[in-house]
Simulated scan of single mutants.
Amino acid sequence: MKKFNIILLTSTLVHLSLFAQTHTKIIDMHIHSYTESEFEGKEPDQDYYGNKGSKDAESHRLETFAAFEKFNIVKAMVSGNPESVENWVTKDSNQRIIRGILMYTPDDYDMDSVKFEQMVKDNKIEVFGETAPYYGGTTLSDSIWQPYLQICEKYDIPVAVHMGGGDPGGTYSWSPKARLKLGDPYTIEDVLVKYPKLRIYMMHAGGEDWPEHALRLMAYYPQLYTDLAVMLWVEPNTQRYIKEFIKNAKEAGYLNRVMFGSDQMKFPYAIEKSINFLKSLDFLTDKEKEDIFYNNAAIFLKLKE
């Protein structure tokens, strides 16, 4: 009977542990949306492992929404063409979507600072990002981005900036001005100095190229956060880098500013892969994983329960 009770207790504890893991609230700080016309294009149709992505933009939305439901993703920062983001919002009955905007250059979508400020006032932009100056051959510190950053500071709009490199070969096709040096986190230092009240987070934690620069920047600027994003799933080398980054962030005491993001792009299954990889890191406590999955982002976003 004693042996049976021990087995029963062990089984119950395992069940409760799995239950807790399954139902952990998650905020995904890095989701992409697409219109049908732009779904085919610059991003590859299959991932590093040969898995194909969604067949079209609507399938992609449905599969991503299904992942939100399955993994208890209660909030998701969605960036893309404003048309695609609004399409997602209208179909988001659970009010999960945080409106972002994907911009490579300051005049994407015929944008200017006047139009941008009106969109902010109309609650059409809740996060300025993913901003990806890297792909357009600039950095966020360049003068052309300053009117947008001034508006973000004025209205307390968070900024999400792509850091690290991009897709291999992109410089020879859709992003000819992209250069690896433009993805160095140090390129945004002037922004951090000029706008000390700005809520800003790096995407990809500096990527494969600059994880130590990302950590040093976080050390100097305690308002700076980061997400983990594509590094969690895209291929073994990025997983190697991000594992070390998380270890070093923990040792340095910056883990409370690390946030989960999947960067699922055309591959909604990347959400599950990202979650599973993060959960597999045995050097993190359950509390630390919960903080990365939810608590840190909730604080950054100033969410009210």
Score class of each variant (00 low, 15 high):
residue 149 L to T: 01
residue 204 H to M: 04
residue 215 L to G: 04
residue 178 A to G: 04
residue 286 D to L: 13
residue 211 P to Y: 09
residue 130 E to S: 07
residue 193 V to S: 12
residue 72 N to I: 03
residue 231 M to E: 08
residue 175 S to I: 15
residue 300 F to R: 03
residue 201 Y to H: 07
residue 199 R to D: 05
residue 86 E to L: 12
residue 167 D to E: 14
residue 168 P to N: 12
residue 219 A to C: 15
residue 187 T to K: 04
residue 218 M to I: 15
residue 188 I to Y: 00
residue 261 G to Q: 02
residue 299 I to Q: 08
residue 218 M to R: 05
residue 290 E to D: 08
residue 126 E to M: 04
residue 246 I to C: 03
residue 77 M to S: 02
residue 136 G to F: 00
residue 256 N to G: 05
residue 94 N to I: 11
residue 294 Y to C: 01
residue 52 K to V: 06
residue 211 P to K: 08
residue 180 L to K: 04
residue 31 I to E: 00
residue 232 L to N: 02
residue 299 I to A: 05
residue 51 N to Y: 14
residue 266 K to G: 02
residue 80 G to T: 00
residue 86 E to N: 14
residue 31 I to D: 00
residue 35 T to L: 09
residue 138 T to G: 05
residue 38 E to L: 15
residue 110 D to W: 13
residue 139 T to V: 08
residue 185 P to Y: 03
residue 46 Q to K: 12
residue 304 K to T: 08
residue 136 G to Q: 01
residue 164 G to K: 00
residue 248 N to K: 03
residue 6 I to W: 03
residue 78 V to E: 00
residue 88 W to Q: 07
residue 89 V to T: 12
residue 21 Q to A: 08
residue 110 D to V: 09
residue 232 L to K: 01
residue 175 S to Q: 13
residue 280 S to L: 13
residue 301 L to D: 03
residue 277 F to I: 06
residue 168 P to V: 13
residue 296 N to T: 02
residue 44 P to M: 07
residue 104 Y to F: 04
residue 47 D to K: 02
residue 156 D to V: 12
residue 95 Q to N: 13
residue 73 I to S: 02
residue 262 S to K: 02
residue 302 K to G: 15
